[in-house]
Amino acid sequence: MSEQDQASGLRKWANLQRQQQQAEGTVDVAAAEHVPESEQPSSLLKPTAAAVEEPATVVAHRPKIPLIVVGLPGSGAAQVNKVKARLGQWSTLGRSWAGDPEDWDIHIVMAETADLAQLCDQYSRWALWISSDADTFASMFRTLRQLHERGGPRRLLALHEPHLPRQGLLNNLREAADYYLNMELLVLAR
């Protein structure tokens, strides 16, 4: 077989690879380069490993879901991790909406913030962190009242510790938010 026949076969092979890659949506630049027949060296008798490699698969990254959380003292990584841990617990319990905690873009916001109304317009998912200490009802109701007065959200997810029963604190807080503030507090219990 002559060098011209070998080069012609190699060009056909490269064209076939290029067509397959274009059909998949990617193009290997090295395979797509055209070298005139007269300039091709005789070392092109067989394709190199670089020419045969599969193109790298690009994994589409899903955008994170923003979640604004009020009711936590302060902000920072520790508070965000606390919320992610709770979402992880719900996910483990089979709550498919919770998904992977890393899929959430969690923002800790104080109810006293001046731009609360703008945040409410910008974000649709809000949550209230409910702890289990003795003064929780009073502090959480105060937080809800501040949200109400400053144009905050009218619907929030109750993020609470796993051992809190629905009866008692959670139901009382939910009913008070509904009755006095016309706010919906979504309580999920086991």
Score class of each variant (00 low, 15 high):
Val70Asp: 15
Arg86Met: 05
Gln89Ser: 13
Ala56Val: 11
Val59Gln: 11
Ala85Tyr: 04
Val58Gly: 15
Gln79Tyr: 05
Ala60Pro: 09
Ala77Glu: 11
Pro55Phe: 12
Arg86Asp: 01
Lys64Gly: 10
Ala56Met: 08
Pro73Leu: 07
Gln79Phe: 01
Ala78Gly: 10
Pro47Phe: 02
Lys82Cys: 06
Val83Ile: 12
Leu72Arg: 05
Glu54Pro: 09
Pro73Phe: 04
Gly76Glu: 01
Ala77Phe: 07
Ala78His: 10
Trp90Val: 06
His61Met: 08
Glu54Phe: 04
Pro47Cys: 01
Glu53His: 09
Gly74Asp: 14
Asn81Tyr: 00
Arg86Lys: 03
Glu54Ile: 00
Asn81Ser: 06
Pro63Gly: 06
Val70Tyr: 11
Ala85Val: 03
Lys84Val: 00
Ser75Lys: 14
Ala60Lys: 11
Pro63Trp: 05
Leu72Trp: 02
Lys84Ser: 00
Pro47Gly: 08
Gly71Ser: 11
Val52Trp: 04
Pro47Glu: 02
Pro73Val: 06
Lys84Leu: 00
Thr57Ile: 14
Ile65Ser: 07
Val69Leu: 05
Gly74Thr: 00
Leu67Gly: 02
Pro66Ser: 01
Val69Gln: 01
Val69Trp: 15
Trp90His: 02
Leu87His: 02
Gly76Arg: 04
Gly74Leu: 05
Ala50Pro: 11
Lys64Trp: 09
Pro73Gln: 13
Gly74Met: 05
Ala78Met: 12
Pro47Val: 02
Val83Glu: 03
Ala77His: 06
Gly74Tyr: 09
Ala85Thr: 13
Ala85Cys: 05
His61Arg: 14
Leu72Val: 12
Ala56Arg: 08
Ala85Asp: 13
Trp90Tyr: 12
Leu87Met: 12
Pro73Trp: 06
Ile65Val: 15
Pro55Trp: 11
Leu67Met: 13
Ala60Leu: 15
Ala56Asn: 03
Ser75Val: 05
Ala49Arg: 10
Asn81Cys: 09
Val70Thr: 10
Trp90Lys: 03
Lys64Ser: 13
Glu54Ser: 05
Val58Gln: 15
Ala60Trp: 10
Val69His: 01
Ala56His: 09
Glu53Ala: 08
Glu53Phe: 13
Leu67Thr: 03
Arg62Thr: 08
Glu53Cys: 04
Ala49Leu: 03
Gly71Asn: 14
His61Asn: 14
Leu72Phe: 07
Ile68Val: 15
Ser75Trp: 04
Lys64Asn: 01
Lys82Gln: 13
Lys64Phe: 02
Glu54Thr: 12
Gln89Gly: 08
Thr48Pro: 07
Ile65Met: 11
Ile68Arg: 15
Glu53Val: 09
Thr48Tyr: 13
Thr48Val: 04
Pro66Ile: 00
Ala77Asn: 05
Val80Thr: 02
Pro55Met: 07
Pro73Glu: 14
Leu87Gln: 03
Val80Lys: 12
Glu53Pro: 02
Pro63Ile: 09
Leu67Tyr: 04
Val83Cys: 11
Asn81Ile: 02
Gln89Glu: 15
Ala85Met: 09
Lys84Tyr: 02
Gln79Cys: 06
Thr57His: 14
Gly71Pro: 10
Ala85Trp: 12
